[in-house]
Write a protein that binds this DNA or RNA. Structure first.
Lengths: 235, 235
DNA sequence: TCAACGGAAAGGTAACACCATTTGCACCCT
DNA sequence: AGGGTGCAAATGGTGTTACCTTTCCGTTGA
């Protein structure tokens, strides 16, 4: 399982939100499908209040629309908040997983190079030294083919740079990138052993960030991600 | 007013969601501040159910966390779903407007060039001709200094390319970019008359997309956005 | 120092009145 | 006969109230 880092307060609506969200994201409840509160109550054995609250959340994410007399209608994907971590998670968990990984990878290629460049300008001293340290660790783990541990450090590496960018919208993508990295290894889209070039590029990014060389950090990160994508495509 | 294109079902929680969301986004309710359902009920004169539903939505956006015996606590911005259109809207409406415009502009620089490149590969024939048409219209309106109409066509131009990219995550940013463009003119961050270079670049992007020249579309769009940012920064 | 306890506040259930919208049917005019 | 108009009933979300349960924070007392 991909780790679930949501706070999820164990509430009663959480399971039903999860189930309905997944079914919608998976397309099992297609656009235009109509649910009713009564149906939800009965299906999950909960009170109306709970059913309503779950539905409200779904509605605020754009997955459904609630209208009087007609019920709760599933909306087309164009209306979804596709940046909502829950929605991303649901799509990653369902049959659209491959497509979601592809769109997320494109997003990474767009954002992470700029984030790395910004981090080279904005990172704290602690962050700069940590990123260098992480790159060295990745080198060691990669050459030892310690895949799981490598992935966890890689998650930390990318999250650190996104958060050090000083742009909270970039920082908010850290969890999403973590999900992508974990999902990718889980899907077997990783090479059996990280290619040396990737290790070089991690180190190049780290060195550029540590040295405050913004443009260099950006291009190195871009090269790294393009390499990642090319490794994903053919399978 | 920046146009509000939310569906906002006129419900009774919508006003209270709006008010609380704005107050949190504005920092009037600082991180750690504690609300109670009773307080919300009383303040807005609504029943417990309505207060709870509004709170649930806020919670699903990461703005607050609800805990028994403690109340409803405002969470730090790092936990917010800063890509949620409502959150973006609230931040744009409050004192953080300038900061939000800056982070959004960085996001645009990250995403729109890649989206334009993807659009050059994926756009339909209708979209290709429309983008060329829009660029010509922008030229005409820009030279005539028809600022309002120019902005509306500009919104359409950028939205079209984001949606034509074939990546629904990029497409979902269309509304956000629209808000940025409208907010920017409203803030007076636009030159009195669009600079000729910007008009040239719009046409260059359009021609490259229409001709399927992906790399060219990408670099032209990047140049356009960098120009936009430099126009915003000094004032 | 730590365990027990009281109470505050959210979590959840149930029953109800209300209201908007749709559906369908009756009616009337052409 | 056909079709539009309008009334009425069914349906399903919206909002309110009352009440009980569960969780933990803070205090108190051994």
């Amino acid at each position: 399982m991909i780790e679930r880092r949501n706070q999820s307060g164990s509430g009663l609506h959480d399971p039903i939100l999860e189930k309905l969200g997944m079914e919608i994201a998976a397309g099992e409840l297609p656009t235009g499908h109509v649910l009713t509160l009564d149906g939800i109550q009965e299906r999950f054995g909960v009170s109306r209040t709970v059913a309503r609250e779950a539905m409200r959340i779904l509605e605020s994410m754009g997955l459904v629309q609630s209208r009087r007399r007609v019920g709760i209608t599933v909306r087309p994907i164009a209306d979804w908040n596709v940046f909502d971590p829950k929605v991303i998670w649901w799509r990653l968990s369902g049959p659209a997983r491959g497509a979601q990984l592809r769109t997320l990878t494109e997003l990474r290629i767009a954002v992470e190079p700029l984030a790395a460049g910004a981090a080279a300008r904005a990172a704290t001293a602690a962050q700069r030294s940590r990123v260098v340290e992480l790159a060295a660790t990745l080198r060691r783990l990669g050459e030892a083919a310690e895949l799981t541990e490598f992935m966890e450090r890689d998650v930390e590496f990318h999250a650190l740079l996104l958060q050090a960018s000083g742009n909270e919208m970039f920082g908010a993508l850290a969890d999403v990138v973590a999900a992508v990295l974990r999902g990718r290894t889980q899907l077997g889209l990783m090479p059996h052993k990280p290619v040396p070039q990737a290790l070089d590029l991690h180190e190049a990014v780290a060195a550029a960030v540590a040295g405050g060389r913004s443009a260099e950090a950006e291009t190195a990160m871009r090269a790294l991600l393009v390499e990642v994508r090319s490794a994903m495509l053919p399978g």
